[in-house]
């Protein structure tokens, strides 16, 4: 017999009348009875008077401690300006730098949120933030997209909240819909040594399974640079079209570099300035003909160019 539906399990948990054969099944079935027990526990925890005095916000200084600690760590995103060549690429963790670290290195143990090792407590506020951190370099930014001046320092202010909402609107509901389906593990960079020193390339991978399905390379072309994008097989654009983007490693900004025809190699002129400013994540998205110039959020392939 098939398992009861969620609704039937809820009714059992609530003590509502349920068909006898269904409840008989639940008694026999470990999965279903565990499910009912889970629902009963939920009910218990949600029920009854809560001896509860109200939410208590932490002191305002705590947020500053959070940002200071993040900025002081190598993982800190660099908001603007060319990152020093010796620094790990922003955002992609310790494996983004030019060092020959295997690209698929998982997060170090103490960077996982679930670490139970007592040694990975954060620094207390008395540890100074890195003075060359993002705040110090933010002034050199000249982003190609309008970004609110306050956006790079993420203060908890009404202004930032508004900016956040504007940005959220720009990314749009499509982003959510798409990303619920597609996980967001971006393809990691591979470093490919080359003779001329002028070429970098990266495998483009699916966001969910990190399947390699294409490649992007930056090549010298006259005075400038070309971004070449090729996929192993034609991507499905559905009713829409494929657009190639360079996303800034700070995760906040992006520029569209052009439209990719399925099955073809795309060549797009870009500039060294873009790369220097951190626009190093190559992203192919599926876009609809909807008159919305922003990224749909429906990313098919992605890869971060090596630093």
């Amino acid at each position: 017999m098939s398992h009861p539906t969620d609704d039937e399990l809820v009714d059992l948990a609530l003590g509502e009348p349920v068909d006898a054969s269904r409840s008989a099944h639940v008694e026999e079935c470990a999965v279903c009875s565990a499910s009912v027990e889970q629902l009963r526990r939920t009910l218990r925890l949600a029920s009854g008077p809560l001896a509860y005095a109200g939410w208590q916000a932490p002191d305002d200084a705590v947020w500053a401690r959070v940002t200071a600690q993040i900025d002081a760590e190598p993982d800190a995103p660099v908001d603007a300006g060319p990152p020093p060549a010796t620094m790990a690429g922003p955002d992609a963790g310790p494996d983004a730098g030019p060092a020959p670290t295997p690209p698929e290195t998982p997060l170090p143990r103490d960077e996982r949120p679930s670490g139970t090792d007592a040694a990975d407590r954060p620094d207390r506020p008395d540890r100074p933030a890195n003075p060359t951190g993002p705040a110090a370099t933010a002034g050199t930014a000249y982003p190609p997209e309008p970004v609110p001046a306050d956006a790079t320092v993420t203060p908890i202010t009404a202004g930032a909240a508004r900016a956040t909402r504007r940005r959220a609107a720009a990314w749009g509901a499509a982003l959510v819909a798409a990303s619920l389906v597609v996980g967001l593990l971006a393809g990691r960079a591979i470093w490919s040594p080359n003779e001329s020193g002028s070429v970098s390339q990266v495998a483009l991978k699916t966001l969910d399974t990190r399947q390699r399905e294409g490649e992007a390379s930056v090549v010298r072309a006259g005075d400038g640079l070309d971004l070449n994008v090729v996929t192993d097989r034609p991507l499905d654009a559905g009713d829409g079209y494929l657009e190639v983007w360079l996303i800034n490693a700070d995760g906040k900004r992006m520029v569209s570099v052009g439209v990719l025809r399925p099955g073809e190699t795309g060549t797009f002129p870009i500039s060294q300035a873009l790369i220097d400013q951190g626009y190093v994540v190559v992203d192919i998205s599926k876009e609809q003909f909807d008159d919305k110039p922003a990224h749909s959020g429906d990313s098919l392939l992605r890869g971060q160019l090596p630093a």
């Binding site: 939410w55 208590q56 916000a57 932490p58 705590v62 947020w63 959070v66 993040i70 995103p77 908001d79 955002d91 956006a151 993420t154 203060p155 908890i156 930032a160 909240a161 900016a163 956040t164 940005r167 959220a168 990314w171 509901a173 982003l175 959510v176 990303s179 619920l180 967001l184 490693a249 700070d250 995760g251 906040k252 959020g297």
Partner: peptide, 28 residues
Amino acid sequence: AELAVRLVGGDREALAEMYRRWSPLVHT
């Protein structure tokens, strides 16, 4: 969900927004 997506994508503002929304829950 949008916030979650942005955080995973490395958006620091998403972290700030999450802090604004949920630091009282965590703190309590």
